[in-house]
Every structure is written in C-alpha cells, then in structure tokens.
Nucleic acid binder design. Structure first.
Lengths: 209, 209
DNA sequence: TAGATTGTTAATCGATTAACAATC
DNA sequence: TAGATTGTTAATCGATTAACAATC
C-alpha cells in the first residue's frame, strides 16, 4: 500500500540523480548523498526505498548500479514508451523537439494538429490531421498522450483520445478536464506555476527578508 | 498560519476558473460548482476561503466579481509582473512566444542566451547575451526568472541570477538546483511528469481495470 | 572494536474530508 | 417556513521526520 503519488514521483527523481552520479564515476551512494542530490531528507530516501522493499547494505550504503536496476524494475523501463502529441502550436512543437523525453526512453511516435498547414510539415515526426487520432491510437495501441491544444478544444480533444483508448494524459491546457475515473490526467499549467513563484517571492519581499 | 503551498496553488486555480465562469455569464457560484470546475471538493473550497477570511453568503454562495477581487488582493494582481527568461533553445523559445503568460499579466521583459547567433534574432522580445544578466536584473529590479538552459549550465546560471538579485526561479532543467534559503525554486521536469503518467497507466493496466 | 549507516517503528506534522450548527 | 448553503470544528487520513536498534 501507500505507494503514494509523491513517493513515485521521488523515485523517478532518485533514478535521474543516480544516473547522473553514475556518470560522474560514483559506484556507491549513501542515503544522505542521494537525499542531498535530489533535494529530500536522508530519512525520506530510506523510507521510500523501504516501502518498495529496496535494501542497501547496513553499513555501506547502496550500489548505484543495483539501485538503478531495482528502480527500473519498479518504474518500468524495459522498452521505449510511445506516446502521441496533440496540438503542434507554440508549446506543442517545442515538445516535439524536446530532447529530454528521448533521454528517458520516451518517444513521441506521432503528432496531430487541426491546421492542415502544419500537417506534413513534419521534422522527424509525422504530423497528422486530428481526425486520424482514433485509428492511429487503436492501431498502435497508444495509451498516453500529451495534450497541448488551445483551451477551447482541450475537453473535446481529451474525449476523442479517451474514446480511442488513451488512458493517461499530460495536459498543458489551462482547464480542468472532465474524464472518467479510469483515465489519469497530469496537469501542467505553466502560467500558474510561474504565478506561484512570483507570489511567494513577493510575500517574502513584503515581510522584508 | 497554514497558508500552505498547495492551498495557494489552488487559489490560483480558483481564480482562473472564476474568470472562465464569469466569461460564460455567471454571476454567482456555489462552493460545489467551483469545486467541480477546479477539480477539488466543495469542502476544500470553503476551507481554503476560510483560511484567508474570504466569506460568501450563507445561502447564496459567492458573487464571482467580488470573489475575483478578493483573490486578486490576496494573490496580488495590480500591475504586470516582469520576469526574464534565460535560455532560448527549444523550450525557451516556445516559452518566449507562449501566450498563456500575457493572459495572466505576466510579461517576459527580456531573454538571454549564450549563443551569439540567437541574440538579436528577437521577435518582439529582445534576446541579450548571458553576460548582460547582471546589469539587466539590477537595473530593472527583476525578481523572478525562468530557467530553460541545458542541465550542465543550470547551476551556474542560477547562481548568476541570484547574485544579480533574482529571488524566484521557475526551473525547467532536470537538475536539483542548490540555492540559498532566501530563493524560491519551482521545478518543472517535463520528462518526469510524463513518466509519471506512463507509470500510473501501466500499473493500472497490469491490475487490468 | 568503534563508528557509521541502514531499515523500521513511532511521533509529529499537515492537509483533506466529514459533519453540522448557523443562517439566509 | 423548509431547504440549501456557508463557515468552522473535529475526525480522519496520509506523508514526513525523528529516533534508534540492528549490524556491518
């Protein structure tokens, strides 16, 4: 139980940090090293590991390679994950070219846009008309989509994706999507994220310190 | 007390929903309407409001206009907020053109990049060399920056910003920035956000339902 | 061994939810 | 009035932290 959402999120962060540490030549890591590297407490690291039955060596910390393997097993990292992108406007086209996904073995296998001018104008990834979503998702058994369309069409786009078989959506449109319980939505609202930073900075400024 | 981070975050979401509702012609709203619109429970809405002394009418819900005004007062929305962007690569240049910020009265007043080829090649917003950050931030009293540089230079860029006077950073580089306590960092790791969705979908798929 | 680190339990902390009296 | 909704308190829930015995 208690594989809490934020715990999983941290496991991903640990894995990323471990890879970086490995690249730097480290072989072992202690819970406090890893905690510092990923911005959490040492206790938190050990607790998270404990929840998933990940063990280290009572005195010698954790072997980085073994740890990464275990995280790969838990988080799943056998094959490349295919996702699709809907909406190739401003943000969408940047995501299409974003290298951070490939690095994590995520591949955007196709993109979709309502604007005929954008279709075909592909770089490496083909851009199809929106009406092709249904077939594409079914044929390729796509389960996850990135939604980067204008707010006004976000809900209908989501419904189209879900009808086709998509079960997880990373949503950049600043609206609350209404979806069935079986579908997972992760919202990223860039404006709100930035507003939050601004808010906290100005609050601190007011309390002058 | 207890102006928790997530509570503030929700207040921003409420405001956004309220504006949408207003645009649709609504004048009043009940806690359960607003809850549904923003994806939280009605109790949560009332609790959040109560923490900030926002009151409605015992029977008649909340007047949307008055509510927006109160949120504006709490969250601060008098003048346009100026921020800068560092790194105009793939993601950075998309953020530069992202319209969602302007809509929330946030303005990217300048951008910076290490690549001379990108400098001057401005659209509406001027792109300066990185070495100009210090002066620009000081002269224009910038407090918040968006960091969209490659991971390897993220830490040093952050330090440069902080030295210049920046107190809040929205960080897109997939690294844990080491910053003094006085600085607020909000991390957005696109790959991890997407991996999370993929993970939760595949877990559910395994438990077939 | 002495010192250091894990793994886990218990304590704390905070956030969400439920419930309901107040009241319009 | 009867019904509905707020505002707030108390209960629940979950997540983080602290502490420490186990042990290498």
């Amino acid at each position: 139980m208690s594989e809490s959402k934020s715990c999983i999120f941290r496991l991903f962060r640990y894995r990323r940090c471990l890879r970086d540490l490995k690249e730097l030549g480290y072989v072992k890591v202690f819970s406090d090293n890893l905690g510092e590297a990923s911005g959490v407490t040492a206790a938190q690291v050990r607790k998270d590991f404990s929840l998933f039955g990940i063990t280290g060596n009572k005195k010698g910390g954790y072997i980085i390679d073994a740890l990464i393997d275990k995280l790969n097993y838990i988080l799943g990292k056998d094959e490349v994950q295919k996702v699709i992108l809907v909406g190739t406007g401003n943000l969408g086209s940047a995501l299409l070219r974003y290298k951070g996904f490939n690095k994590e073995d995520i591949q955007i296998s196709a993109a979709f846009d309502a604007d005929p001018a954008k279709q075909m104008k592909s770089g490496a990834i083909q851009i199809y008309p929106v009406k092709d979503i249904l077939d594409y998702v079914k044929i390729n058994r796509i389960r996850v989509a990135i939604l980067a369309v204008p707010s006004v069409v976000a809900q209908e786009s989501a419904e189209m994706l879900i009808a086709a078989g998509v079960r997880g959506i990373l949503n950049f449109a600043p609206v609350t999507l209404k979806v069935p319980e079986k579908v997972i939505v992760n919202n990223i609202n860039l404006a709100i994220e930035l507003e939050n930073v601004i808010y906290h900075v100005s609050v601190r400024e007011k309390n002058h310190r």
